[in-house]
Design a protein around this nucleic acid. Structure first.
Lengths: 250, 250
DNA sequence: ACCTGAACACCGTTCAAGT
DNA sequence: ACCTGAACACCGTTCAAGT
């Protein structure tokens, strides 16, 4: 029998109902791509083929609406930022609580789309929703009492830790299941059977180390970071600024 | 003229001197792969084709020594861990200084190989050198005065922040140059021209935000993290440490 | 204007064939 | 035992052709 180079329509998953002409738009493509991303394994699982199947359309039809995969991906990130902002209460009176909530919300929403987040954490979309998220973080740090220069420096460090954690845990979630389970097993098996003479610390603690990509790990790191920022804010200018109200102006 | 599907020997970069039979070993492949990784852009730049060229050998010859690209990559990570350990002085008297040095050294060495680190940060190699690095970190936290359970929890958080930062900055370094420069420009242009009415915080601070992937950013985050860990350790077990550190300024 | 189909230049991986 | 060459099942992307 002939072996087709590409799987035929019969072999692949049944395509959605075929769309009539002109029905395809960026909005539809974004939604379909998010659906595929939530389901598929890694960024390379988000395929024009899979996306075409999801939309009931030829894979290359997408190129009419997005220049390339990178432009599509950046648009998806903006959509994720929108979702982050949509679920976020307005800033309250406690800058640290606001900062913490924003980070937790971002982490949680991004990790719903590991295939994208794995690759998106590194990028800057430079568009509206991203601007708003950054503005929120900077605002928290100004309210903490830092001057503009310090707020800028801590913005970058805080944001990097957040995005780095997203990249890490999303990357883990995006692994092929067999790979992921193998790596998990390393911690529940290999690390727990090391010789105590050569690895005294691990012999005592290995069984107590939390699992890779457990969301509690991010919370631990986040709280440490906020404690340290708070401590530094206290040492610096905070007390002369404390009474001046939420509009830190400039 | 015929357009060959694959670039011919004449079209590609001149292969290194052809090796005689049996000269190929894992050690040689690892070195060549590290060389390619330091030069190439992303993980997909580390190609069997490029590696074959570097070695003066047919691309598929590598399969005789490594099961697949994943096994090769994990071996590369072990080699990087070896390099980390080789440049690390033995533990001293100050757990925080030791922890800081280990993190800085890891970050620095991994970032020499962005193509690999981008993908490696997520993984567990479960082999000798990785065990040793983990043992060192756990040891620092035990010396800080934490009990085993706390040491285990803080190990994971600390290690995640380190690896997340590596993933983030390596991912950025591994971007195609045009993409990387475009993203940098976002911060030096787009973020600096936002309307002050809608983005008061950014209007004041955008010009002061450090560049993406500036290594100083990691140092800032690292010092914050260690300060917080030290503070928590002080509350629990050991307090005799408070004044000793050489003023962890940023 | 919008979508399809075929083609192109790649990938990683397998396998029979050479030495 | 070790390497080569050809093939396979994918990728993203381009482009002429259809409607």
């Amino acid at each position: 029998m002939p072996s087709p180079r590409r799987h035929t329509a019969a072999a692949g998953p049944a395509p959605r109902r075929r769309r009539s002409r002109g029905e395809l738009e960026r909005r539809l493509i974004v939604d379909a791509a998010l659906a595929v991303s939530a389901r598929e394994e890694g960024y390379e699982g988000l395929t024009f083929q899979a996306l075409g199947d999801e939309l009931g359309v030829h894979p290359t039809a997408i190129y009419r609406h997005f220049r390339d995969k990178d432009e599509l991906m950046l648009t998806l990130v903006e959509a994720i930022h929108a979702e982050v902002l949509a679920g976020l209460p307005p800033p309250g009176t406690d800058w640290a609580a606001d900062l913490r909530l924003l980070a937790l919300r971002s982490y949680e929403v991004f990790l719903r789309f590991p295939a994208i987040s794995q690759v998106a954490a590194v990028r800057t979309t430079r568009s509206e929703n991203e601007f708003q998220v950054v503005e929120r973080i900077v605002g928290c740090l100004q309210r903490a009492g830092f001057d503009d220069a310090d707020a800028a420096v801590y913005y970058r460090a805080f944001s990097d830790v957040l995005l780095g954690y997203v990249a890490l845990d999303a990357g883990f979630a995006a692994l092929r299941p067999a790979t992921r389970e193998g790596d998990l097993r390393a911690w529940s098996v290999n690390y727990r059977s090391l010789p105590a003479e050569r690895f005294p610390g691990l012999a005592a603690t290995a069984a107590l180390i939390p699992a890779v990509a457990d969301p509690a790990n991010f919370t631990t790191a986040l709280d440490l970071l906020i404690e340290a920022i708070r401590a530094r804010a206290g040492k610096g200018g905070e007390r002369c600024e404390a009474g001046t109200g939420p509009a830190a102006g400039r």
